[in-house]
């Protein structure tokens, strides 16, 4: 049994929040470069160039890539041989968020009540925290700071097995078509298949954690991802929806077992400000 004091988690979470908002992953940069080369629209090419300029400036000026620094979503892998001491684990994560969003000059985008009051909580808490228990004596904390514009273009649909994989592909492509320029394309399309109503959405979000330069480990799913990516980029939406070939730079799918009567499909749209960072304690 390894003891971890939750107070030691606070500065780690704080750093994750600040770093994720400023430093974009190499996988995103690589993919954007690859697509910029193939891009046919001059406006689109220029938009991608401005995105690169933004990534450079954010590091130089230590300013967040996007003013929407997101809701702080955490995926925690908690080793079963860890004993958390020194206080409430969830409170510690939220304290890290509070400090990170304050000291990093990040925008506070959470309201306390979804519709009636809608009062800003002024410190970007509460964070959304998902917990998995895993073997071992480590804690892995992954932050995905998710912007509202792309999140709003996401959807869950309870489909039928009879719709087939073609039906699934059509739904995902149509979801991107209906999103148009709203989620700040170039985007990454996260797809969750199976599980249940609620789990499909979580799978879609988790699928986005796979680095963009890693193929789906299962060749038959890798093929589906490629097919969706091609169809999505044939829509012509392009960067910012102003026309072009670069609508999405990757499609990531995660699937799970499901009930004989069900076929849930979830699409989680992620913008090019793809912020995810991990730390292992």
């Amino acid at each position: 049994m390894r003891e971890i004091d939750v107070k030691d988690i606070i500065p780690i979470v704080k750093k994750l929040c600040i770093d994720a908002s400023i430093y974009i992953g190499d996988d995103v940069v690589e993919k954007l470069k690859e697509f910029q080369k193939k891009e046919e629209s001059p406006i689109a090419k220029e938009i991608i160039a401005i995105i690169f300029e933004n990534q450079r400036l954010s590091v130089e000026k230590q300013m967040p890539l996007c003013q929407d620094t997101g809701v702080a979503v955490f995926f925690i892998e908690l080793g079963q041989d860890v004993h958390l001491v020194g206080g409430d684990f969830y409170k510690a994560i939220n304290e890290g968020v509070r400090q990170g969003y304050k000291e990093g000059y990040l925008r506070k985008s959470m309201v306390d009540d979804p519709i009636i009051e809608r009062k800003n909580t002024k410190d970007n808490t509460p964070a959304l925290i998902y917990l998995d228990i895993v073997p071992g004596d480590k804690v892995k904390i992954t932050l995905a700071a998710k912007g509202g514009g792309s999140e709003n273009m996401s959807e869950v649909k309870m489909m039928k097995a009879a719709d087939g994989i073609e039906g699934v592909i059509d739904f995902v492509v149509d979801r991107v078509r209906r999103s148009g320029g709203n989620p700040c394309p170039p985007i990454i399309v996260g797809v969750g298949l199976g599980g249940n109503f609620e789990q499909s959405a979580l799978l879609a979000k988790k699928s986005l954690l796979r680095p963009l330069n890693e193929k789906n480990p299962d060749p038959k799913w890798a093929k589906v991802e490629e097919e969706i990516l091609e169809k999505v980029n044939n829509l012509g939406i392009g960067p910012q929806g102003l026309g072009g070939r670069t609508t999405a730079i990757a499609v990531n799918i995660l699937h799970k077992a499901c009930h004989i009567a069900c076929m849930p499909v979830a699409v989680n749209i992620q913008c090019h400000v793809h912020r995810h960072k991990s730390a292992v304690i």
Binding site: E53, N54, M63, C66, G181, V273
Partner: peptide
């Protein structure tokens, strides 16, 4: 702003001689 506008807004822009300008979403430091 970013993203398209609906028909009512487009009609109103014609009527009032106004324009909608797209800025690049996510290019917030620029």
């Amino acid at each position: 702003g970013k993203g398209p506008r609906n028909k009512e807004v487009i009609d109103s822009m014609i009527k009032n001689k106004a324009v909608y300008l797209a800025a690049i979403g996510g290019a917030a430091v620029v």
